[in-house]
Design a protein around this nucleic acid. Structure first.
Lengths: 282, 282
DNA sequence: AAGCGGCGATACCTCCCCGGTATCGGACCA
DNA sequence: TGGTCCGATACCGGGGAGGTATCGCCGCTT
């Protein structure tokens, strides 16, 4: 199977429309139709159901969509990492570390310090990205190592090492009745009148249904809490970042948040290994 | 990057010889040279060092070899799994389970029984393969789920669930002085005169250097032990398989062997999920 | 030192296949 | 029943992949 065919199929499978897929690929529609037919013939499998109501995926098509996306990511990763390796004349390319904006501030600073103090340390580019994007950045080669937070971030398909575990707190506007308590339970928070949990965007940018206000980052979120429009359950380590007017109360039965360092499983980079070693020694 | 280019590069990088690589690929040498040059130009990276003493890999080339092999495996997996999905008219393709020949006999039987008793169970093809091949079978789509043994098998890049932990025993010919002991230590075994540890083949079929006899499977190994030519450290569960003339003595400080069930991280197969659930309930 | 063999690069040719334009055919709709 | 939306088909042109022949370089031989 050629990557061209895979890219074509993934485009059609995502758009479920030959015309739009062709446009997105920058080619005309007829060659796209032909390429997909040819792919189906060579695989001996019907991938798409062409109905008058548009195009739908067959079971085999769904499999190829998932597996094909993973394969295309692997190819992108190969290309990117090769380019990066070639840029480093010393054989010591820099490392790209990715983490969520607004999280792990202190831990990240300590990690960078500890690593920089090691002999043979190389430059570390820190990339801050949106929710849920880290795994993709690691898989397609735009990043070499990530700081993730279980159970929020998926670590499937990555090698990880646990760094830090912490409980969670509910962040409330100052003066809220619950702020007097030494701790609360999840059920207390879920039932708060007028302070719904906010909604985070899905990977495709849309928002799930629900009552809470849509938010894109932690700053927005905390501002909404301060305005009395929302409540938020966050790891304890947000406490130092809380502005005046916000109070954090421990949630006894919220799941523990574990900060982990993660990297692609077949990584053989010395720099990543050293970074992981530094992290585990923190 | 096209898979054709990747395949060509991987062939050259593995052979370190354009002529042989071309032969292996079934093409002539000049187009291969051209394709590699073009790839290097497009990546803006030197991948190979052409010296009069043959071809060597640059740093960037090493990166592309590793990443490229992973990407090609992902593409093979996409193709194979799509084909398999298309063969199953009910949307319930069979599952391919892979494990080492001669190991996990009892556990595997129990697992297959437990899974078969579940509603909606599908056919399970059991593939027995050689040492160290399981990961590759999972990654390139020839298998869907595997039984592995830590710490011998690498589980990098796979999702796993622990099933069973056991100690190890040293297998000796009956009558050997150590067979009177209730347990031994690694240092006792390492120093045994005339009973060296056997050598297992590497992934490419060659054998590492050393004193022990080369072996390919457990039957060979146990026969050599019975002949007084070798000793072997194996998981406790081999005891029932031991023929007369062989004695097992627990090794107190040998690493614990954990049997795990493993599957590709992005697997969405219902059947694999059910199999894993059945396994964890054993 | 000249010859020779091994190996990758270059030159040049051919043909396939990819992509483009024009058009068709069926389904749904007013 | 004409319109239009959408994928398939027909046909054409150009680029690129692969083949053969040959070159250029290096190291070995005697």
């Amino acid at each position: 199977m050629e990557t061209r065919e895979l890219r074509y199929f993934v485009a059609v499978a995502e758009e479920l429309h030959f015309g739009r897929a062709a446009q997105r690929l920058g080619i005309a529609q007829p060659p796209l139709s032909r390429a997909i037919q040819q792919l189906e013939r060579r695989l001996g499998a019907a991938l798409l159901e062409r109905g008058s109501r548009g195009v739908t995926l067959t079971d085999a098509g769904s499999v190829l969509l998932r597996e094909g996306q993973a394969a295309l990511d692997a190819i992108d990763a190969a290309e990117r990492r090769t380019r990066r390796a070639a840029l480093a004349p010393t054989g010591r390319p820099g490392v790209v570390l990715v983490t969520k904006a607004g999280a792990t501030g202190e831990l990240l600073a300590k990690l960078l310090d500890a690593y920089a103090a090691e002999p043979g340390a190389v430059a570390v580019d820190v990339v801050l990205c949106g929710i849920g994007e880290q795994e993709r950045l690691l898989r397609d080669g735009r990043a070499d190592v990530a700081l993730l937070h279980r159970p929020f971030d998926s670590t499937a398909g990555l090698d990880t090492e646990d760094l830090h575990a912490e409980g969670q707190v509910v962040v409330l506007p100052a003066g809220h009745p619950l702020t007097g308590r030494t701790h609360v339970r999840m059920s207390d928070v879920a039932a708060l009148p007028g302070l719904p949990m906010p909604r985070w965007p899905n990977l495709d940018g849309t928002f799930p249904d629900g009552a809470g206000p849509p938010v894109h980052n932690h700053t927005q979120l905390l501002q909404l809490v301060a305005l009395g429009r929302a409540s938020a359950i966050l790891p304890e380590s947000v406490r130092p970042q809380l502005r005046n007017g916000l109070v954090a109360v421990p949630v006894a039965d919220a799941p523990t948040v574990t900060t982990v360092i993660a990297w692609p499983p077949h990584s053989r980079s010395r720099a990543v290994a050293a970074l992981v070693r530094a992290a585990t020694r923190l």
